[in-house]
Amino acid sequence: MINKQNAILSLVLGALALIRPLMKITGLIDIFGSEAVGSIVMTVLISVVWIIIVLAIKVQNPIQVLVFAGISYAAFSIILSGILSPILTGELQGPLTNPIALVSVFITNIIWGLILGIIASVISHLEK
């Protein structure tokens, strides 16, 4: 069971990761040269920030927190897509239009959070 502090942290980290799709929507992602490169760079930067935050706060269970952060990000990005795609394109697009994509977004972000949580746990144990 995730405690209240870790739940809040997971939600904050998930919301923080929305910077990537927001940069894509606004075109700011192109400052990295291309959308593909920008997406990779931003994902790496977000990953590093997530790990630094859980290590700095000395979270007891970084795997749990970062898996839930991945779930939070997946939910937030799906909601953001559902709100913005009709406004920007005139029709609903994205994971909400495809059940397989919807599941895929959650699985991908759970795996992302799990990998980062394992990395943070290993670093945390090495620091002790």
Rank of each mutant, 00 (worst) to 15 (best):
I111R: 05
E91D: 07
P95A: 15
V49C: 04
I57W: 11
I79S: 05
G94D: 12
S81W: 05
I107E: 14
I51C: 03
P62L: 05
I110K: 01
I51K: 08
V54R: 05
W112M: 14
P99Q: 14
F68M: 15
L96T: 07
I63M: 13
I79T: 01
I63T: 12
K58V: 07
P95F: 05
V103W: 04
Q60L: 10
S81Y: 03
L92I: 00
L84G: 08
S77N: 14
E91W: 04
P86C: 05
I87T: 02
Y73D: 08
A101N: 14
L84T: 06
I79D: 14
P86K: 05
K58F: 03
W50Q: 00
G70I: 06
S85Q: 00
A69S: 15
G94Y: 03
S104E: 12
N109C: 00
F106R: 04
T108G: 13
I51A: 08
W112H: 15
I107R: 06
N98F: 03
T97G: 13
I57Y: 11
I79G: 10
E91F: 08
G82N: 09
T108I: 09
V49L: 12
I111Q: 10
L80R: 05
I57C: 06
L84C: 04
Y73G: 02
Y73A: 00
G70K: 07
I78A: 01
W50G: 00
I83W: 07
L66V: 02
V65A: 06
I63L: 15
L96A: 02
F68A: 11
V49M: 10
G113S: 10
I52R: 12
A56C: 11
T97R: 10
I107F: 13
P86F: 01
A56I: 07
P99G: 14
E91K: 15
N98K: 04
S81M: 07
P95W: 00
A69W: 02
K58M: 10
V103H: 06
G70A: 07
I53Y: 07
P86G: 05
I63P: 05
A101T: 00
S104G: 14
L102D: 14
I79P: 02
A75P: 05
V59E: 09
A75K: 06
A69P: 00
I100T: 15
G70S: 10
K58D: 15
S81H: 00
W50Y: 11
K58T: 10
Q60G: 15
V54E: 11
A101R: 10
Y73F: 14
L88C: 02
L80Q: 04
P62M: 05
G94Q: 11
Q64D: 12
V105T: 09
L96E: 06
V67F: 05
T108P: 06
L102W: 14
